[in-house]
Nucleic acid binder design. Structure first.
Lengths: 237, 237
DNA sequence: GTATGATTCAAACATCTGTTTGAAACGAGC
DNA sequence: GCTCGTTTCAAACAGATGTTTGAATCATAC
């Protein structure tokens, strides 16, 4: 049961906080119940008592913040569309409604939004089957709405291309939030950029630049037909 | 020992292939020795005999392909710089030397490059401590070289910004390769785009668009200090 | 043939995993 | 005082984990 009705709310919250942090740091499988309960300062059996098991705990960790995040995104989009009154939105605003909201949530270090967004970022590429399906349900409505808005806002970009670029943007944001840990992997200069404003100021132009980039050229050769490989098309040389 | 000298090379290769695949699918912690050895069709003790343990196996899984990948990247950059003869390279070519090489490796489905690139993509955000340090060593030289080339090629973008955008590009590529699995999470329309040429044609423009995007405006207040912003160069509306 | 070293194999190692249990402690209502 | 439902707790559960062991098998050289 999701931390309401009966159940000690303090114990539940402590478990959720500890699990969120440890899942972010070590992943689901590498985080044991004993790590969680000892970090939370509760008895080992508490997780099974309050949540029912490890899988249910994982889902509640996401549920606690993901519903809020996606609702905030939809509300931001609603506000934009209401203000525009039928006219296509500016890509800049759409991107901000989706990614800006997430970045501002990640800015909330004390409230735990920061930890959660990092957890969410790494969960995209580490999809345990039941977690993937769980995430898919929560995201279906949001992605549909934003995809439609982007298609309307970018009539020059084919819809299929927009979906891919959406995907690429998710990747860039995920890395942006995972942030310095992965960056120091890639560079000796440690960039302690945990200022969310600055991060948004870096990421947003990148996302928009990629989203509105001119389309890639089709391969010049291959004139017609389903990829019949002819003798050996001589390239320039 | 890294699959050379003594040791049955067939057994070692089968273990590496199985481990690579299972690590990509389930992650390191969730993949047991018994899964690996049974998938490879070898005895349970074979991993410890040939590699010394699970951690050493993980490192060899990466070593097998990562050194080749990064050397190919450096060679591509070498060729570009030799051809340019001191002149700054075109960003398009630098990006292709780094990400294009990776995408072409990912295109090698039969040779295992595809599985490996997906594994590598998800490993960035799932950094077990010892794996992170291991990756950092392999990447240090490459990133240094490419960062320098990009700084030279993009004099308008501050070096720090370039490093971040490098990071964002890594994220986008990681998601691009993790590809459809995460995308179907985000959309009902299944995009079976496993054609690497098409993927590169989608990703490259996105990366370049992000890399060359105009800088984000500083917060409007904060008048003085470094980076004095002059009036505001008006672009086309 | 035998001898030697590398490789495989089944079995067991201690330790950790998620979960369950039943009794103890708690807190409010009366 | 007592009772009742909720919550905590230490202990144990069966099963899986990575690793080790010592004998069996193999290949090769003599």
């Amino acid at each position: 049961m999701s931390a309401e009705a009966k159940h000690n709310p303090d114990t539940c919250a402590r478990i959720l906080d500890a699990a969120e942090l440890l899942f972010m740091q070590h992943g689901f499988e590498a985080t044991s119940m004993r790590m969680i309960t000892s970090e939370a300062g509760v008895n080992l059996a508490a997780v099974n008592y309050h949540f029912g098991g490890k899988e249910a705990l994982i889902q509640d960790v996401f549920r606690r913040r993901l519903t809020w995040l996606n609702q905030a995104r939809l509300q931001a989009l609603d506000a934009l569309e209401a203000q525009a009154g039928g006219a296509p939105l500016k890509p800049h605003h759409i991107v901000d409604a989706f990614f800006g909201v997430a970045l501002r949530m990640a800015a909330d270090k004390l409230g735990g939004g920061y930890v959660f967004m990092r957890l969410l970022g790494r969960t995209y590429t580490e999809p345990t089957e039941f977690v993937r399906q769980f995430l898919a349900e929560g995201y279906a409505a949001v992605v549909t709405r934003f995809k439609a808005a982007l298609i309307k806002a970018l009539p020059d970009v084919p819809p299929e291309e927009i979906l891919w670029r959406f995907h690429f943007m998710l990747g860039a944001m995920s890395y942006a939030i995972s942030g310095t840990d992965a960056l120091q992997l890639v560079s000796d200069t440690r960039l302690d950029e945990h200022d969310p404003e600055a991060l948004a100021r870096r990421l947003m132009p990148f996302l928009l630049g990629g989203l509105r980039a001119p389309l890639g050229k089709l391969p010049t050769e291959r004139p017609a037909g389903p990829a019949v490989k002819r003798k050996r098309a001589p390239k320039r040389a």
